[in-house]
């Protein structure tokens, strides 16, 4: 009998499982912070977590609530600034995995974090690119966290802030973005990946208790589900580390 777990916990663990020793992990806020910390504590102790603000390999004894949090500057090997951080994201010698979040995503993993509606007079304005466009341009791979809803998984983005596989096929490469691209999308329902050739999103894993039908209903474009498998639920050990070591105040785990 396994323990009950929250959506954020399942998402953090699903994303954390992608991280390997030696990876340089770029973390954002929220679940992404949880996933980066969990990855380091559970799966890849030799991975390095760093932040666009310039904090490199912090001890993460407490979970940061923002990428500029004092907690990303504590126990680091080096505290620097934005330009240094972006020289790491795109560095030719490093394998960098970036965690991002977005308001909208399309089938090629392009992201919108800018606005909904007319750009100049939007219905809803979001924070903007921040470093998202930059890491989407330069990192070796991007894992995006999304709430799985039809209005978020859209045929056409209202604004393309960060490039994934652009228009599919070789189009990203042709833009001049010579590496990287969308690696996976982790939602509250499952894990999506991208076809090697077409670069279109497909369902790779659905969480225990979630049906493939439900995922199709909540995706605003046709999604290939022929390769879908049920995800392995979080183990007791994974959950215990997440709750007791990564986020003991339950600041992010809870939701």
């Amino acid at each position: 009998m396994s323990l009950a777990y929250s959506d954020n916990e399942m998402m953090a663990i699903s994303a954390g499982r992608f991280i390997k020793n030696g990876d340089i992990v770029f973390a954002g806020t929220g679940v992404s912070m949880l996933a980066a910390t969990a990855a380091k504590r559970i799966y890849a102790p030799k991975a390095v977590v760093f932040f666009e603000t310039g904090g490199i390999d912090p001890s993460l004894d407490e979970i940061p609530m923002a990428v500029s949090d004092l907690r990303v500057m504590s126990g680091t090997c080096l505290n620097s600034g934005l330009i240094e951080a972006f020289s790491i994201v795109g560095h030719r010698k490093l394998h960098t995995i970036a965690f991002l979040g977005a308001a909208q995503i399309d089938k090629y993993g392009n992201l919108n974090t800018t606005s909904i509606g007319d750009y100049h007079r939007p219905k809803t304005r979001f924070s903007g690119s921040g470093g998202a466009c930059d890491v989407a341009s330069f990192a070796s791979g991007v894992i995006t966290f999304m709430q799985h809803e039809k209005r978020r998984f859209v045929e056409k983005l209202d604004y393309l802030t960060s490039v994934g596989w652009y228009k599919g096929g070789n189009s990203r490469q042709e833009l001049g973005l010579t590496r990287g691209g969308a690696l996976a999308v982790v939602t509250n329902l499952g894990v999506m990946r991208f076809d090697e050739k077409t670069k279109e999103m497909y369902l790779a894993e659905y969480y225990p208790g979630v049906t493939v039908e439900k995922i199709k209903e909540n995706t605003g474009f046709e999604i290939d589900v022929s390769r879908a498998k049920e995800a392995i639920p979080p183990t007791e050990e994974e959950l215990m580390i997440l709750r007791n070591e990564v986020d003991p105040q339950r600041l992010i785990c809870k939701a």
């Binding site: 795109g90 690119s129 466009c133 330069f138 604004y159 393309l160 001049g176």
Partner: peptide
């Protein structure tokens, strides 16, 4: 190279 393909360069 940052921004190629993004709407940062379309609007």
């Amino acid at each position: 190279k940052s921004g190629l393909g993004s709407d940062l360069l379309n609007y």
